[in-house]
Design a protein around this nucleic acid. Structure first.
Lengths: 243, 243
DNA sequence: CAGTGGTCTAGACCACTGG
DNA sequence: CAGTGGTCTAGACCACTGG
């Protein structure tokens, strides 16, 4: 189960094992203490603490000094997850009909891009997304070349990219980090979205990574703020721990 | 400077020292390597790595395996949306100094507002917020009259409202639902924030509720997008929503 | 008081980046 | 190759919680 010959770091293996056990309901409220986990997995305290720190940072666990490490009861952020799942799903959930127009699908050489998480040639896919026939967003996706070339063999005007990645290509999307901001629309963005030049557009930059934190996709989205907003539920907690 | 007799943990002292040095422009791009910091502060590698990890988590530093640890240049303040933090806390976490100017503190009669979660007279507090002396955001808070009147007895130009609510008034903030969008700045907002009229501003509307879901506060914020962005981590198939 | 997480030391070997 | 961060060990003492 935990294998020190496995190239996956021990602390990641332990994190994953703990998550599996929590999901299986193996612990009611509290996970075993650090000393107990040291015994159970025959690792050092540093390794156990690193595994736990990751889950605390993810909001799954909560540590209380002198008491123990507890499972965080909480509600999922349903609106946000549906956005992450795919824009197609979100549009459908709102009772509208999604559609897409492929704007670009092309190779980019490593020296022509500045996406510093990828130090390799990339494949770029750009689509204009519609809801009930009205322009809603422009989405740019960047993938490693091998992934992008496989994607390009499908009809990107109609397919959902997440479906292709996960179901056709067997790629596991685990985590996403997103940054939400705004920009003044330039002429091209304004024209495509059907808004005045200089009007505010919502922007999203996103890095999707696999379970080990390796980046799989870089994404940039431009949304019409009159048609699309972000909804997030937050808890007053203070889980701003260091990993 | 770094004092092992100080009750503040060494790694926190080192974090703070690094932030101070970065702000002072002591490093151009890269901070010293972990081995160099071990020498400089006469601590173990664990302690140095703990200090750095905090700043990486806050978005101030970025580690690159085999190369070094780099300063995240000119990145706007990043708020992790999964936690409900006050702007004061967020600014401090980024190693900057928060300040405020009170713009308004006034009673509003029930018939003069349209905030449909409150069917009662309200108290409205509006402040201009600064980070390191630069305008960052305009924040409007609406409270039930009894709460607002108590708040108004404090110096709202210097106090943190969350602190007053939680520590002075014993009010428990549990959950918030936030809507993030963007608007073109009108003349007043542009003037206060020091940006051109019509430029994009990030907007947040927020309802904070107690553990039973009773609304405690309605909030509206206007943020300069060059200085402030929202950050969210999401799980693709996690057992919970966002960390 | 025993048990918990928080901090910290002083090492070790590995994988990665660049010249 | 020398230098970097990534992982990991095997300890130690501290501060906090609860009975």
């Amino acid at each position: 189960m935990i294998d020190s010959n496995n190239p996956i770091p021990l602390h990641v293996q332990i994190s994953n094992a703990l998550v599996k056990q929590i999901k299986a309901g193996m612990y009611k409220d509290k996970i075993p203490s650090e000393r107990e986990l040291i015994e159970a997995y025959t690792v050092s305290r540093t390794t156990v603490r690193q595994a736990i720190a990751k889950l605390v940072n993810d909001g799954i666990l909560k540590k209380v000094h002198g008491k123990g490490t507890f499972i965080n009861e909480g509600k999922p952020i349903q609106e946000w997850l549906s956005n992450l799942n795919s824009l197609t799903e979100t549009i459908k959930n709102m009772g509208m009909t999604p559609s897409s127009k492929l704007l670009a699908a092309e190779q980019i050489n490593v020296k022509d891009h500045t996406i510093d998480i990828f130090n390799m040639d990339l494949y770029r896919i750009e689509r204009l997304r519609y809801a009930d026939g009205e322009p809603l967003a422009i989405e740019e996706h960047y993938y490693p070349l091998s992934v992008g070339l496989k994607l390009s063999s499908y009809d990107l005007g109609t397919e959902t990219i997440f479906d292709l990645l996960e179901n056709e290509m067997g790629i596991t999307l685990a985590e996403a980090e997103q940054i939400i901001s705004t920009e003044d629309a330039d002429a091209r963005v304004a024209g495509l979205l059907g808004i005045p030049k200089g009007a505010s557009v919502l922007t999203v930059e996103r890095i999707i990574a696999d379970e080990l934190g390796n980046p799989l996709e870089f994404y940039r989205g431009y949304y019409r703020p009159d048609k699309y907003v972000f909804r997030v539920k937050s808890k007053r907690n203070g889980l701003r721990g260091s990993p």
